[in-house]
Structure formats: C-alpha cells, structure tokens
Amino acid sequence: MDNKIRMKAENVDFFYGRQQALKGIHLDIASNAVTAIIGPSGCGKSTFIRLLNRMHELVPNAVLTGRILLDGKDIIAPDVDAVDLRRRVGMVFQKPNPFPKSIFENVAYGLQINGMKDKGKIEERVIESLKKAALWDEVKHRLHDSALGMSGGQQQRLCIARCLAIEPEVILFDEPCASLDPISTHKVEALILELKKDYTIVIVTHNMQQAARVSDYTGFFYMGEMVEFGRTEVMFTRPRDKRTEDYITGRFG
C-alpha cells in the first residue's frame, strides 16, 4: 500500500443475536484515499461500515469481537466514547436523511451539539461546509428554507455538508447514491473524489462501476467474508478469486 494506514479491522466477527453477519474480516483503510466495499445484497458490507463508527451499537443484541483500529488505537475498547469517535468518523447514509429543519440548521446542528456557541463562527463554518459539499451556489439564497424541500441529490449533498461541518477525519458513505438519479450521482461522486484530498473515505456500494470510478482500493464481500482486497484497477482487471470475477463480470449479484 502506498498510503499510510488510517483504519484497520483485525479479525472482526460480528453477530446479530446468534446470526453471524461477518466472519474474520481483515481490512486496511488507507489515509487520503477512497476504499470501496462491494458485494451482493446481504453480504455484510453495510454491517461492516457501521462498525467503523460504532453505529452498530444502536441495534440491540449486536455482538462484536476482534479489533478495529483508528490510528493504531482500538475504537471498540470500552474506554473509548462512541460520541467522541463519531465526531472523528462521520457517516453519510443510503437514504438522504436531513432533519426536518432549515438548510442552515441542518449543518449547524452538529456544531451546536458539539458546544460551539459563537454565532459568527457557526455561520462561517456552515458556509464553508456547504461550499465544500458543492451545494453553496444552489442554496445560498434559501438557507432558511426547509431542507425537506430540496431534491434528493441536494439533500444528500446537504448530509455530506452536515458531516463535513464537524470536521471528521474519516467519512463513511453507506451506498450514498442508491436513491439518487444519474446526474446527482455524478455530482456526489465528483465530490467524493474532491474530498479524498482532505479525508479518508470508505464507501459501500452495490454499483461496481461506481466503485471503479471513485475508489483507490476495493474490498469484495461475499456472505459475511471478505473474499478479496486490493487496488481497484487490479481487482477489476485481474481478480484473483473466482467469486470476485463472477461478481464483477455480472454472473451474480
């Protein structure tokens, strides 16, 4: 690997109750790069990405073993506060989920709950985040309109802006374009490529072309296991495993 390793999953097993969703996952996530996780529905890719900022804890009966490291420190350890972790590892969800508040309030929310009180500073950061998310020009005249009045693609970029506002180090994208039209998808992909200069990015996608377009590294998940991991261009041209080849050539999935 060329880039420094930012996050690392070591021998991760994960269960929903008695049902095992992930088996012995080892995965390195490089700094300032896009790591894509692909695989058919139900392969555990979304489950995996939610471990990286401990969102799995919102589900009752979730059991995790193994280690997940961020800068060499185990984030699953009991002394690590999930709230602090989530401020460093942000997340953008499959379905755009802006709050039923104004555009401005959506971005400001994360700042306010993190204790930022200075109105000027909040405004500055909101504008900066909207610009980074390539949304500023579209919304600058209606910052105080409801976010629910935006198009799906705009809502998703708003969710990205909201995530950027709290200045995370890693951003997790859980199928961010699954409910978007092609033009919006293109905008979000361009944004992801732009963001990787400053952030470490993990993206889960069921769209192989998307993985090929945006990612530097790709991991292929199948039935709770990681079948293959490598540089994206290698994986898509010379897969080592038969299952990977079958999947990316469209024989199943």
Partner: peptide
C-alpha cells in the same frame, strides 16, 4: 419519527439526550 433522523444525529456525535431533545421532539 423516522429512525434515520436518530441515526443522522447519533452519527454527528450527538448523545441520546441531545438527539431526543433537539431532533426527535421537534420532528
């Protein structure tokens, strides 16, 4: 209230309390 609001709030580093007061009750 859609679960996605709660998830969005938690993912931004809000604790349960902040999520209930500032997101769920207004929603």
């Amino acid at each position: 209230v859609p679960r996605s609001y709660e998830e969005a709030s938690m993912a931004l580093g809000a604790n349960k309390w902040q999520t209930v007061i500032q997101v769920k009750i207004p929603a």
